[in-house]
């Protein structure tokens, strides 16, 4: 999963729906651990501004 940091508002909604604890809000930045991620797409669907897309973080 990939987060568009220009769009992300750091609201934490994606963290709440991740079943495998792959998303971390730290130091005012959201990170997805793609090693843990199971591609369930919950975060992508729950994000209020669609800041998450499929693919690896660059």
């Amino acid at each position: 999963m990939k987060i568009n940091r220009d769009v992300c508002d750091i609201c934490g909604t994606c963290v709440a729906v991740c079943p495998v604890d792959a998303i971390v809000v730290s130091e005012f930045r959201v990170n997805i651990d793609n090693e843990k991620c199971t591609n369930c797409l919950n975060c992508l669907k729950a994000c209020p501004i669609k800041a998450i897309t499929e693919g690896d973080q660059c």
Binding site: T13, A16, V17, C18, D21, A46, C47, P48
Partner: peptide, 9 residues
């Protein structure tokens, strides 16, 4: 974690 249906975006 909460299910998708159990969160309002």
């Amino acid at each position: 974690s909460v299910a998708l249906k159990d969160i309002d975006t």
